[in-house]
Simulated scan of single mutants.
Amino acid sequence: MVKKKVFKALSAVLIVSMLATGVIVSIQGKTTLEVAKSAGDKKVEVIKAIQSA
């Protein structure tokens, strides 16, 4: 039960961070591929943080 809530919260944070990354990157004028890569890197960091917790 608690794990589901934590997972949902982390998912929400991840989505928000991806959107924020997209907005920042579009302002800087980078390509879509770089956006996807940086969003993927953030996802990996979050997963590693969950596993070490």
Score class of each variant (00 low, 15 high):
S11Q: 08
K48F: 06
I24G: 00
A49M: 09
T32G: 06
S52E: 14
V44S: 06
K3A: 12
L10F: 06
A39Y: 01
A20E: 06
T31F: 00
K30M: 09
Q51D: 12
S38Y: 08
L10A: 05
I24F: 01
A9Y: 10
L19K: 04
E34Q: 13
K42E: 12
V46N: 07
T31G: 08
I24H: 00
V13C: 09
K8T: 13
I15Q: 08
K30W: 05
Q51R: 13
K4W: 05
K3V: 06
V13R: 04
A39C: 14
G29I: 11
K30S: 09
I50A: 07
L14D: 12
Q28L: 15
G40Y: 05
Q28A: 15
V13S: 11
L33P: 01
G40S: 13
V13L: 12
A49V: 10
M18T: 02
S17M: 07
I47A: 11
Q51V: 08
V2N: 09
A36E: 02
I27A: 10
V6S: 09
A9L: 10
V2L: 07
V46M: 12
A36K: 03
I47V: 14
S17N: 06
L33H: 04
E34W: 11
V23R: 00
K30A: 08
L33A: 11
L14N: 14
M18C: 15
V16F: 13
K5S: 08
I50Q: 02
Q28I: 15
I27L: 13
Q28F: 14
K42R: 09
G22R: 00
S52I: 12
F7V: 06
S26V: 12
K42V: 15
S11I: 06
I24M: 02
Q51T: 06
K30F: 09
K5L: 09
I50V: 14
V23D: 00
I50E: 04
V25E: 04
K37P: 00
D41G: 08
V2H: 07
S11K: 08
S11A: 13
V44N: 06
